[in-house]
Design a protein around this nucleic acid. Structure first.
Lengths: 188, 188
DNA sequence: GTAAAGATACCGTCCGGTCGGTTTTGTCAA
DNA sequence: TTGACAAAACCGACCGGACGGTATCTTTAC
């Protein structure tokens, strides 16, 4: 059955659906559980349609990663824009964005789950660190400041704990940690 | 060719070789690159022999995880034992063990690489957090102390950065961060 | 008319797990 | 000490499904 005749062509929408399906699958089953057929089925697109947009599985993963980084970058920029105090502004925004990201294209939980799953992908590491270096420069943050690094590292660590925390053991006083970290940014 | 007649039976050794081969492969190729055939070949054992020790791929992964956790636990205990100051002793040892683990059964680099690769495995999360809760209780650390949590989170974050850092961009002043974190433990 | 969008069928490979085998080791009675 | 016997250790061939990617087609949009 050729459904190409039944549906209007809308490449942007299809592409977005493919990425969203990919995100859901990666979040639920990890990168190992990601299959082209599964993505195509979930997105309601044929495998050929998927391959048309993302010529390989790796391209699909990189597309997802890029979308996540972009969403994170947008959230970060928004937080920085509405912060009047320049002292440690980037690090403050980083803490907020990492630990309570606003919903963008994807929901925050979905994004987080994908980011965690993709953590093990060596091919993405360089891209992530390059992005981070660029952000630090762009927002005039001293990348080598020890306290600043500690705060950001702690945000990452708390993020990691929250993401790997099994259901049934609620995280207590998460907010207290976030507030303390935020307070520390004013000492930068 | 039946080699069973050529080699003495030494189940403990074979098991260790299988785990080491698994570690190397996971470290180099990630969990996705892990295959039973590959492990068996690298360990110089037949696939049947591998299956005898680890009845499934998941069992193999869990075996590796258990070995890593055990090595980490040993390193932690050793650090705690030689620390006379009870204030924040566990957290201090945690920082040291996470960021400069001694070699045990596996080399530290190997262990770290595996730990990172396994981070995305949802099935292991509960085991890890259960272990962590147990350790906190066992060593009398206040699990909810905000500063203590921040220090440990920062250690995790720095570990994550170091592990995902691409070659060619040396981490600067890593030692300064570790020293600062260690100093902070005396404020607990 | 041509290029992009999308669909379907199919192929080759890879890989987890099964199975039936052999050899070694431990145990225990004679 | 020895022989019998079970269990553990270990081997390697094989199967079947899953999966990435290709090839070729039709339809829509410009």
């Amino acid at each position: 059955m050729f459904d190409a005749c039944r549906r209007k062509k809308q490449p942007q929408l299809v592409r977005a659906q493919l990425l969203e399906a990919t995100a859901h699958i990666v979040a639920e089953c990890g990168p190992a559980g990601l299959t082209l057929d599964g993505v195509a089925r979930r997105a309601g697109v044929s495998k050929g349609g998927l391959i048309h947009h993302f010529p390989s599985k790796q391209a699909l993963i990189e597309g997802l990663f890029a979308a996540i980084v972009q969403a994170f970058e947008d959230a970060l920029a928004a937080l920085i824009a509405r912060d009047d105090d320049p002292r440690g502004r980037f690090t403050r925004a980083y803490v907020a964005a990492v630990l309570a990201p606003c919903d963008g294209v994807f929901s925050c939980k979905l994004m987080d789950a994908c980011a965690l799953a993709l953590t093990g992908d060596v091919a993405l590491h360089e891209a992530w660190h390059a992005w981070m270096r660029d952000q630090l420069v762009r927002h005039g943050e001293d990348a080598e400041n020890v306290l600043g690094r500690i705060i950001r590292y702690a945000a990452d660590g708390l993020w990691l704990e929250a993401r790997t925390h099994p259901a049934g053991f609620p995280l207590k006083d998460r907010q207290a940690v976030i507030e303390r970290l935020t307070a520390m940014t004013y000492d930068l």
